[in-house]
């Protein structure tokens, strides 16, 4: 349990670092470390497949693309637009409202009696596969169609318009 609190502390610490550092490349690197602590959380939950997929997809692919874009943009402190006091005030109020909402919903959840899994090995890859392809086949297929749609949309957006029109 103390290990969990330590990792949870690290997650929150690095997540705060993501939004407080000035340099965007540092932000992305802190985000990578935050995702790494999530991977450790999944391993603590005995969800090895989820852990390694989180590792590959988020740390290995998505964050590399983030870093890629940021390196091309080459953002500096000078190019960062100055935000007006009004925007800052609105941001603070909105953030506080979100915090109150989250705190309220967590209180309703009754964290003090956690759900005990019937099968602690549910996160291993063969159990997960059986559940996904037997019990939840329809939602799984539908989410794959959703991903396909997103992919087609991305290709369409990236495609250049033919010049002769």
């Amino acid at each position: 349990m103390s290990l969990f609190y330590f990792i949870a502390f690290l997650s929150i610490f690095f997540a705060v670092m993501v939004i407080t550092t000035k340099n965007p490349v540092h932000s992305v690197l802190y985000l990578v470390i935050t995702f790494f602590t999530f991977t450790v959380h999944y391993i603590l939950l005995n969800a090895q497949f989820l852990a390694v997929v989180n590792f590959i997809v988020y740390m290995g692919a998505i964050m590399v693309l983030f870093l890629f874009v940021l390196m091309l943009l080459n953002l500096n402190k000078e190019t960062e637009p100055m935000k007006s006091v009004l925007v800052k005030a609105i941001g603070t109020i909105a953030g506080m409202c979100l915090l109150v909402t989250i705190a309220g919903s967590v209180k309703v959840l009754e964290v003090s009696n956690p759900v005990v899994l019937k099968n602690p090995e549910i996160g291993l890859v063969d159990n997960l596969g059986k559940v996904l392809f037997k019990e939840f086949l329809l939602p799984f297929e539908i989410s794959s169609i959703l991903l396909l749609t997103a992919m087609v949309g991305a290709v369409l957006l990236a495609k250049k318009e033919p010049k002769d029109i």
Binding site: V32, V52, F55, I56, M59, G60, A61, V64, L67
Partner: peptide
């Protein structure tokens, strides 16, 4: 995963 990390 480790290979993917190597590109960093």
């Amino acid at each position: 995963g480790v290979i993917a990390l190597g590109v960093y």
